[in-house]
Simulated scan of single mutants.
Amino acid sequence: MNAPSSATPRPRTNRCLACWCVAAGALALVGLSFWSLDLQWAQFVSAPALARMGRFLAELLRPETSPQFLHKLLGATLETLAMSALGTLLAVLLGLALALPASKAFDGDPARWRGATRLVLNGLRSIPELVWATLLLIAAGLGPFAGTLALALHTSGVLGRLFAEAIENAPSGPGFALRVRGVAGSRVFLYATLPQMLPQLLSYTLYRWENNIRAAAVLGVVGAGGLGQMLAFHMGLFQMGETSSVLVAMLLLVALVDALSFASRRWLAA
């Protein structure tokens, strides 16, 4: 009778040993990273380097506020907001369309296209937005159109994978009750699965919208328009006042999306 109780600690011991091995491997990887990289800490904290960084920050603390520049900044801000919003919207539609065949909605679901669709999602999100924009600029030319499509393609790969996981993790009871009554699969998704995953869908979408605002700044390096193009131009000329104003505009956009995310979560929880 006592044999099972004496054997029960073994799985727990194995799990603890595995955790310690993972932690030791992570620490070893961090140590090897410090050893292999040429990190010149002494030069980084030297007096000349600190003085240069101080001058740089002092220039950034004096943003450009002339009416002519602010008018141009407002146009670029609205363009970036439109790029990120439209790119995210297209990514939601494409990601949700790909998430359905990429997920196994219930036990016994054959999910014949699951592997192939997940491979497509992996390909979309493994290519950075900057590479997508560079490729699309060849076809669409300079401007926000290529940037919007680049954001949509990369984000659809990210959201598609997240949506597929949300579909698979949704409680199966409501869907099962509809399927046993002969309800079609599309109606099961609309009336059982989608309402349960809607809070997650909205949260993921708003989070990626916030990321896309920052990504739009990177796309400006290749001429995709918006605040990013202004940021690349003024930083290239070392115009720190104009650069500071562009950074403040980006910060306000991110804060706006964060406030919308907070308000939407409170509205869904009410």
Rank of each mutant, 00 (worst) to 15 (best):
M1H: 12
S6H: 05
P9H: 01
P11H: 11
C16E: 14
A18N: 07
S33Q: 13
F34I: 06
D38T: 13
D38C: 09
L39I: 15
A42C: 06
A49D: 09
L50G: 06
L50Y: 08
L50S: 11
G54Q: 13
P63R: 05
T65S: 02
S66R: 00
P67I: 10
L70Q: 08
H71G: 15
K72C: 13
L73Y: 00
G75R: 04
A76F: 07
L78V: 07
L81S: 09
A85K: 04
L89Y: 05
G95R: 09
A99V: 01
P101V: 05
P101G: 02
S103M: 06
K104S: 12
A105H: 04
D109I: 08
R112G: 00
W113K: 09
G115Y: 08
T117Y: 07
T117L: 02
V120F: 11
V120L: 15
L121W: 00
P128C: 05
E129I: 00
T134I: 15
T134R: 10
L142N: 02
L142E: 12
L142F: 14
G143S: 05
P144F: 02
F145W: 14
G147P: 12
T148L: 06
L149R: 04
G157L: 00
E165T: 09
A166M: 01
A170W: 11
A170L: 01
F176M: 14
F176C: 00
F176N: 12
F176Q: 15
A177I: 03
L178I: 00
V180Q: 10
V183H: 03
G185F: 05
Y191D: 13
L194A: 12
Q200C: 04
Y207C: 07
Y207S: 11
I213L: 14
R214I: 01
L219W: 10
G223P: 04
G228D: 09
Q229V: 03
F238N: 11
E242W: 02
S244D: 09
L247Y: 01
L247N: 02
L251K: 09
L251I: 13
L253K: 06
L256T: 09
V257K: 04
S261W: 12
A263P: 05
S264H: 07
S264V: 05
W267D: 06
